[in-house]
Write a protein that binds this DNA or RNA. Sequence first.
DNA 1: CTTGACAGTGAACAAAGTTTCATCGAACAT
DNA 2: ATGTTCGATGAAACTTTGTTCACTGTCAAG
Lengths: 219, 219
Amino acid sequence: MESMTKKQKAILDYMKSHVSQHSYWPSIRDIQAKFRFASTNAVFGHLQALERKGFLQRIPGAARAYKIVPEAVEDLSEMVIRYEGPGEEAVPLTSIPLMGSIAAGFPDYTESSGVLASMQAPLTEGSRRRPPQSFALRVRGDSMIDANINDGDTVIIEPGSPKHGDIVAALIDGETTLKRLIKQGSKTYLKAENKNYPELYPVTELVIQGIAKSVVRSI
Amino acid sequence: MESMTKKQKAILDYMKSHVSQHSYWPSIRDIQAKFRFASTNAVFGHLQALERKGFLQRIPGAARAYKIVPEAVEDLSEMVIRYEGPGEEAVPLTSIPLMGSIAAGFPDYTESSGVLASMQAPLTEGSRRRPPQSFALRVRGDSMIDANINDGDTVIIEPGSPKHGDIVAALIDGETTLKRLIKQGSKTYLKAENKNYPELYPVTELVIQGIAKSVVRSI
DNA sequence: CTTGACAGTGAACAAAGTTTCATCGAACAT
DNA sequence: ATGTTCGATGAAACTTTGTTCACTGTCAAG
């Protein structure tokens, strides 16, 4: 598929974030104002391009009427839907890319096999928003079996500075595994929660992918 | 809060389902056509009423631009968001009411403390839609501890006919508990997955609330 | 009986919004 | 040199859409 230009992506991003924040699409003139175009036709052209390239579907003649094409979403972590209540009581619905695995250093979004969406409040505390860099990871293996995380479970990983006792996604020997972070005095280790794997791994900051916040399991 | 008339609810429902299916709001004339009103003003009046009663927020002058008020959603199981791709590849995002507890026979929506939304595919198999009567239940107690379901977890319950071995939400002594369904010959029992609770409960069809399909746990 | 709320018709208006046309400069490959 | 694509301008045409006004009927409460 043909890819977006920078401006086209910016416009599409703005449109999506507008939907997230307001629950309805922006008009062409809204977009024009946002990007300070002198003519509506500038926007019109970009929208045509986005539709031709397959990232957006327009409903001809209808106002503020579009469909996005999920398959075309490049950065899945930006696919955010939100319900807004009166006042400040926003009810965020964040969708999270689901990774089959994690490659060197950063999640490989090209391997994503779906999207996991969850409402914030019930899954974590308070009304905190899930950071956009969050991702979900299907668990393989039994390294965390004693922490009640089993093969086939899905773990939601968020970036952040892990504290002692946090379960983190860490890159060990080129593979991402879940481990518990152990801080002992000035030393930091990673520990598998499986009594059959008693080893402690030394840790450098860079291998930490993020902190596990939730576990989802199908029965 | 003032409640909706039947027609107002029908219109609001149509609007929500239109958003679900098309990802943009219907115009007043769309609604007019749907309900075969002879005048747009009929719709206009209903929308005014819905806004006055607090169920809907309109953006004056803007086309196809509304916000729904989550607190005003009466039947949470109808709050469905869907992303539609090209062709048949719809990607359903179903939101599920989260119950604090379950009262006699039916989920008590008045006790709902939030909404849990999840994309179907990653959590269960195939592209099956989660039935609209699904709900989520916060687990209290340790009756299923041996099935890896612990105090504080959230379980997603779907209606259906449970098979042998399924984990079900069942009403026992006026309280909803999770139990595993055991069919032994012609007899059916409910069994707690905790070796400290070895009892088998006899079962009548009516006490079964639904089948547990997923478990969500915050770490 | 009257008042008022509710629901609806029908027509018209004006704003909002999309779309088209003609034109231009820059970047870029032929 | 030259055609082509892309991004953008400016103005105008046109459609969609929300909104208003005047008027009608129903139904229940006071």
